[in-house]
Write a protein that binds this DNA or RNA. Structure first.
Length: 596
RNA sequence: GCGCCCGUAGCUCAACCGGAUAGAGCAACGGCCUUCUAAGCCGUAGGUUACAGGUUCGAGUCCUGUCGGGCGCGCCA
């Protein structure tokens, strides 16, 4: 269908941070003019939406605005589209607008908009792609937060890769994002951990004992026990025979009995020191593991500190004051079913201890009180049942439950040699994040995770991720970066003078150059969109497209052999490409190697 | 049983809060290295978007139901 075409005068060349937003503004201006002219009845509250066109023939941007507003204007979509086009203010950004299909408005960027791009990318450098879309809003991203009772496994890896990339993307899009790890260092699991260490320590002291099968079995328990033995010799030794005398046979009562006997023998002080040693060792181990995975946190927030500071007690008191808490069977229940939860939940148990839920209430209350406009929790999919009750507690406390977003990360099913790898923390039969990193490499692992939407079930093929072949998508992107660096090394060797700032980009007339420029111009929009949707995988897919455009260009046109002026323009273009690849890879926590 | 997430090419996944002809990568087949890194490029083939209805100018996307998969439903953490 032939489109109606309108040409604009070209009078300036703005360097726009996010082009799509600029285009939206032009359409908004057009709507205002149409209201003034009486074509539209009132100031339309319809959100102006513009998307990147799919195909080149549809221009750079497309809007369905006319189709949305046609009914209100009493016009056919195509007629309204033409009026909108005619009302567009003059701008150097666009060169023309067309009406096409059932009433789409296709917008074409001006050549000048493209020609300023490589220079803009070069001058902004690592900052190209960042914007102030988030307007400095304070957001918290809390992720991983695994119990410090053992090493992280590959399931945590997915949450780590996702959470860290999300935090980076949010920062790039102008949010004030803080990464936090919530250390679950209170409760029974930690007691079992301390007990496990102590029992292994007793063995080192020469005691013989039947190590309980439901205690922690991992090698790291021996390591911590060895440290304890090295630093304190037999200071915490006790008679194992007495310790294991007349124990309940069932796993849980047995462990609980052992824990209370350990406390009795060692005193709260002694037990607490072993507990603290185990905790600190494992938290430090996790911190190092994540750091080597390219993941770092601003804050490590201790669950125990919430209890010690009285925050949990205060939160329960605050909840009681709302009247949504009642006593039943000597326990205190929160009326969460009043807020959409399936049933009411216990916050204070009959034995006087608070539940895990109680600390969660205190923790989320604390997050909001710390002044975050948006709190993002990244949880494993097995925790989805807790979302409603936590949100319920926020509502009950007078907080806005929409300030909390819980994003669920589905489990990755591991495949090795074409077969499922079954995983269970207790049996010790699980692949740790450390193993994955050492076998696969940090970059491949992170990119592999980044390629998947978090709420999508994921098959993680270990053999593929481990492979150093081209099957591995991360190399495809990194290779593009390395190739560009290589070109510039050749340039230096051949002693060719290249003042990129003097490049004349109007010489870039090849279709593949236009494709590459267009892709580069999209990058800030990709970052903004990934941040808004909490979907860093958009960056990974963008990278693959960008690398593809570059490789295609590389194969089709020589850079160094070209005539001097053209060579300069092309070098400027691929230098800009290199910068954008590096920027985007950084958002995913992946390095951009200069050679491969 | 109830609730949440999902179902797209042989496989693994995209598809910009409903848009134009549903796209990549593997795997398959056929081409491209005396020239800047072949970890690359180009081409061919591959689809009733699980199924059935509904909403509207328009549905992979929203609603209802069915089937299939994952997870969750403790005074555990």
């Amino acid at each position: 269908m032939p489109g109606h075409r309108i040409d604009f005068p070209l009078y300036r060349t703005p360097g726009s941070p996010v082009m799509r937003n600029e285009v939206c503004q032009l359409l908004r201006d057009a709507l205002v003019s149409l209201v003034d002219e009486g074509v539209l009845p009132d100031a339309p509250d319809t959100e102006v939406r513009v998307e990147r066109s799919r195909g080149r023939e549809h221009g750079d941007f497309a809007s369905n605005l006319a189709m949305v507003l046609a009914k209100r204007a009493g016009l056919k979509p195509r007629e309204l589209a033409e009026k909108i086009c005619a009302a567009l203010p003059a701008s150097g950004l666009l060169s023309r607008a067309e009406v096409a299909g059932p009433g789409f408005i296709n917008l074409f960027l001006s050549p000048a908009s493209y020609h300023v791009l490589p220079g803009e990318i070069r001058s902004r450098g690592a900052a190209y792609g960042t914007s102030d879309a988030g307007a400095g809003r304070k957001v918290m991203v809390e992720f991983v937060s695994a119990n410090p009772t053992g090493p992280l496994h590959v399931g945590h890896g997915r949450g780590a890769a996702y959470g860290d990339a999300l935090a980076r993307v949010l920062r790039a899009a102008g949010y004030d994002a803080l990464s936090e790890y919530y250390i679950n260092d209170a409760g029974r699991q930690m007691d079992i951990l301390a007990l496990s260490v102590w029992l292994r320590y007793l063995e080192l002291c020469g005691e013989t004992l039947p190590f309980p099968r439901s205690a922690y079995q991992g090698d790291y328990i021996f390591d911590i026990a060895a440290t304890l033995h090295r630093e304190h010799a037999a200071q915490y030794q006790a008679d194992a025979e007495a310790l294991f005398a007349e124990l309940p046979e069932e796993d849980n009562p047995m462990l609980d009995t052992l824990i209370s006997r350990a406390r009795a023998v060692l005193g709260d002080d002694g037990f607490g020191r072993i507990h603290g040693l185990a905790r600190d060792t494992l938290v430090e181990d996790i911190r190092l593991d994540l750091e080597r995975f390219g993941v770092s946190y601003q804050t490590w927030y201790s669950e125990q500190s919430l209890i010690d500071s009285g925050a949990v007690g205060r939160a329960i008191e605050a909840l009681k004051e709302t009247g949504f808490v009642y006593e039943h069977d000597r326990a205190w229940w929160f009326r969460s079913s009043d807020f959409g939860d399936e049933k009411d939940r216990v916050v204070l148990r009959a034995n006087g201890n608070h539940t895990y839920f109680a600390t969660d209430i205190a923790y989320h209350r604390d997050k909001i009180l710390r002044g975050f406009a948006q709190v993002i929790n990244i949880w494993g999919a097995d925790h989805h049942g807790y979302i409603q009750r936590v949100k319920a507690s926020m509502s009950a406390l007078g907080l806005n439950q929409d300030d909390l977003s819980v994003l669920l990360v589905q489990f990755a099913v591991l495949y090795r040699g074409g077969e499922k790898v079954s995983m269970s923390t207790r049996s010790g039969e699980f692949v740790t994040l450390r193993e994955l990193r050492e076998e696969v490499g940090r970059d491949a692992a992170r990119f592999f995770y980044a390629l998947r939407k978090p709420d999508q079930h994921m098959d993680f093929d270990l053999d593929l991720a481990k492979s150093q072949s081209s099957d591995n998508p991360v190399y495809y992107v990194q290779y593009a970066h390395a190739r560009i660096c290589s070109v510039f090394r050749q340039l230096a060797e051949k002693d060719i003078d290249a003042d990129l700032a003097a490049a004349d980009h109007s010489l870039l007339t090849e279709p593949r150059e236009a494709d590459l420029l267009q892709k580069l111009s999209r990058y800030p929009e990709v970052v903004e969109s990934a941040a808004r949707a909490y979907e860093p995988h958009q960056v990974a897919y963008y990278l693959r497209e960008l690398a593809n455009d570059f490789h295609t260009y590389y194969n089709a046109h020589p850079f160094l052999a070209a005539q001097a002026e053209l060579r300069l323009a092309r070098l400027s273009l691929i230098d800009a490409t290199r910068q954008v690849i590096a920027n985007a890879l950084d958002l995913l926590g992946v390095t951009a190697p200069e050679r491969m």
